[in-house]
């Protein structure tokens, strides 16, 4: 997507420089914009510093390998960590085919009519539904109607529903960014529309799709409300694995919630902050993965 336009853009950059604004109005506006950026940055840095200061001392290998305890110093998030990783894996596994499939259909094959437009509007709206609503949906559909109980698969399916609209929208954007010429070229050489979609459009769009997916996954693992409603347990002392679908589960955000609610200050501040650091580290790893994938494919093109 970037590849075709890159050479021309570079040439333009060399020959043309935007004039530096130096009227009072220009400068003032730029100053206001700078302040706006700083506010966001200051909030983020304050949050980070505060949490790291409170929680860094509680971080250790033991914190990752031990289950929770009533004694703050012995407390760990092993159950939550394995639960979150299992959820992540299952959500990725479910979201990729469903999200990309839906996007591919809507973007490449769906007829342009009222029905499709209705579908599109609905998907866009679904992306804005509060997460707790998905929790309630998961509780009634997966726990009771389908009888999955309060198990790992219920949590994974609930989170999948939560991120699916976002993944569909992001994937459609990715398909739309694939140049028309690639499709036309394929069709001109006698490929069927399906062959073009699967062998040309999809591979070209994969980097953007993956970026969108990883970003929505990182949203999913930070969610507390939907899985709490859909039956994540508050405490357990066993590991989760992605293939133990019918087991109970817990997750890091649930454990943070538990720690914050306890009466002892060591839990509310120290242990909760340490758990937040672990969750943020996970998010950071995922977001970096998204950036690396994007850069890697942009370069290889």
């Amino acid at each position: 997507m970037v590849s075709t336009s890159t050479p021309t853009r570079e040439r333009v950059d060399q020959s043309f420089r935007a004039p530096v604004g130096d009227t009072i109005r220009e400068r003032f506006t730029q100053f206001v914009l700078l302040i706006a950026t700083c506010v966001a940055l200051v909030v983020l840095v304050t949050l980070l510093v505060d949490i790291v200061r409170d929680g860094a001392s509680g971080l250790s290998l033991n914190f990752l390998t031990q289950y929770t305890s009533r004694i703050a110093a012995n407390s760990g998030i092993r159950a939550g960590l394995t639960g979150t990783l299992s959820l992540m894996f299952l959500v990725a596994l479910l979201t990729f085919p469903l999200g990309v499939g839906a996007a591919l259909y809507l973007e490449e094959f769906a007829p342009r009519n009222l029905w499709t437009r209705l579908l599109e509007t609905n998907i866009n709206n679904l992306a804005g539904v509060p997460s707790i609503v998905y929790g309630l949906l998961g509780l009634s559909v997966f726990v009771y109607v389908l009888g999955f109980g309060r198990s790992l698969i219920t949590g994974a399916l609930t989170l999948t529903l939560l991120v699916l609209p976002v993944v569909i929208v992001a994937s459609r954007e990715a398909f739309r960014a694939v140049p028309r010429e690639i499709r036309d070229g394929g069709l001109a050489l006698g490929a069927t529309p399906l062959q073009v979609a699967v062998r040309q459009t999809l591979p070209a769009a994969v980097p953007s799709i993956l970026t969108g997916m990883i970003l929505s996954l990182s949203r999913a693992i930070g969610e507390t409300a939907p899985i709490l409603v859909a039956g994540a347990v508050f405490s357990r002392r066993a590991d989760n694995a992605p293939w133990h679908l019918s087991e109970s589960y817990t997750a890091i955000p649930i454990q943070i919630f538990d720690f914050v609610k306890r009466p002892q200050e060591e839990f509310q501040i120290g242990v909760a902050s340490a758990a937040i650091i672990v969750l943020m580290a996970l998010l950071l790893v995922m977001n970096s993965a998204a950036i690396i994938i994007r850069n890697r494919y942009a370069r290889n093109r």
Binding site: T65, R78, T82, L85, S86, F89, D239, P242, A289
Partner: peptide
Amino acid sequence: LVLSLALSACGG
């Protein structure tokens, strides 16, 4: 990568 991460963490 994510899978192997999950596996190694869950094998425990």
